[in-house]
Simulated assay, not measured.
Amino acid sequence: MSTVLSPIESEFATVAEAEAHDRWFRAKVQASLDDQRPSLPHDQVMAKLRDIIEAKRQAHAFDPVAR
Rank of each mutant, 00 (worst) to 15 (best):
V65W: 03
H60A: 12
I8K: 15
Q58V: 09
S2I: 01
R50N: 11
A16H: 09
F25S: 12
S32V: 03
H42G: 09
D51M: 15
K28R: 14
V15L: 08
A61F: 03
P38T: 03
D63N: 15
Q36P: 04
A61H: 06
A61M: 08
A66S: 10
V29Q: 05
A47R: 14
L5K: 01
A61I: 03
D51C: 14
F62D: 08
Q44P: 06
A47W: 08
S2V: 01
Q30S: 11
A47D: 14
I52H: 06
P38Q: 02
V29H: 07
D22F: 07
E9S: 09
F62K: 11
A55H: 10
K56D: 14
M1F: 08
A66V: 01
P7Y: 05
K56M: 11
T3I: 06
M46P: 01
A55Q: 13
M46W: 11
A20S: 15
Q44H: 11
D34Q: 11
F25A: 12
A16Q: 12
R50Q: 11
D34L: 12
E17N: 07
M1E: 07
R26D: 10
P7V: 05
T3N: 06
K48M: 15
V65E: 02
P41I: 05
F12W: 13
M1L: 10
F12C: 03
V65S: 03
L49R: 14
L49Y: 14
S39F: 09
L5R: 06
A61L: 11
K56T: 05
L49C: 14
H21G: 01
S10W: 04
F25I: 05
A55F: 14
W24P: 02
E19T: 06
I53P: 01
D63G: 09
F25Q: 09
T14A: 09
I53N: 06
A61K: 05
F62N: 09
L49K: 13
L49P: 06
L33I: 04
I52A: 10
S2Y: 03
D22T: 08
P41S: 12
K56S: 08
L40R: 15
A18W: 00
V4G: 00
H42I: 15
A16S: 10
A13M: 04
Q30A: 06
A13E: 12
V45S: 11
F25Y: 13
T14I: 07
H42W: 14
Q58E: 12
E11G: 11
R67Q: 04
T3K: 01
Q36T: 11
S39N: 09
P64H: 07
E9R: 05
A27N: 05
L5H: 02
D35P: 06
P64E: 06
F12N: 00
D34E: 10
Q58D: 12
R37M: 03
Q58N: 12
R67G: 04
A13W: 00
M46C: 08
A31Q: 13
E11N: 10
S2G: 07
R57W: 07
M46N: 03
S2H: 02
F25E: 04
I8S: 14
A20D: 13
W24N: 05
D22H: 04
V45P: 08
T14G: 08
F12P: 01
A18R: 08
Q44L: 15
Q44F: 13
A18H: 03
D35V: 04
S39W: 08
W24F: 13
S10A: 10
D43G: 15
Q58M: 15
I52P: 00
L49G: 04
